[in-house]
Amino acid sequence: MDGRAFVLGMEVVGAGLALIAGIGPGIGQGFCGGKAVEAIGRQPEAGGVITRTMLIGDAVAESTGIYALVFALIVMFTNPFASKL
């Protein structure tokens, strides 16, 4: 097995491992949605504001997942390490 093929394969493995970061935002957004449902159940008339706030919270919680995604895409499609060989 030549070095370039090994590094290419490892880059794809790395991209896959990077997406483990998706667990965090998943839990966070689930928590956020659950709490929003509780809040709307308690105070249905504030539903609009709660939904809006929930979406903002979701978006902010998503950041780390998006960073992981961007990293994985960089590693998969620009091959920064294999191109150095």
């Binding site: 978006a59 998503e62 950041s63 998006i66 960073y67 961007v70 895409l73």
Partner: peptide
């Protein structure tokens, strides 16, 4: 990055 990452 958030906007770009979601659309991409």
């Amino acid at each position: 990055l958030r906007h770009f990452g979601n659309i991409l």
